[in-house]
Amino acid sequence: MKSIAELEAIRKRAQDGVKLRSERDGVRVVVGMATCGIAAGARPVMMALVEEVNKRQLKNVVITQTGCIGACRLEPMVEVYKGEEKTTYVKLTPEDARKIVAEHLVNGHVVKECTIGAYEK
């Protein structure tokens, strides 16, 4: 190692690999991963979220899974918890998931057309 910059570069790269373990608060993105969710295609949605969050190097975002949310007909479902505010997205595709990361998590705008409210109308 010939310089501090070199160490810093390794650190930046390596931190992405371990941030799951250090971040305990911030935005929580929960994917419904019960049998109903998985059958409806929750897995590709989840992986799209993981990829997009890492690509954009977002800090303070935790992606976890949960069991059946109860509205199986609306799967794949994703819930975003930002402080007190909770948004429920339904019938998602991997593309929708990427859009949610870009619009909701980065820019702070809820993707209205994917929310449960928009669908139920």
């Binding site: 190692m1 501090i4 160490l7 390794i10 650190r11 790269r13 390596a14 931190q15 690999g17 371990v18 250090s22």
Partner: peptide, 17 residues
């Protein structure tokens, strides 16, 4: 890499430079 990710070798860098 994981040690470096948790600020490993930063102290050595600081001391030497």
């Amino acid at each position: 890499e994981e040690y470096i990710a948790f600020d490993g070798y930063q102290a050595l860098g600081k001391v030497l430079t």
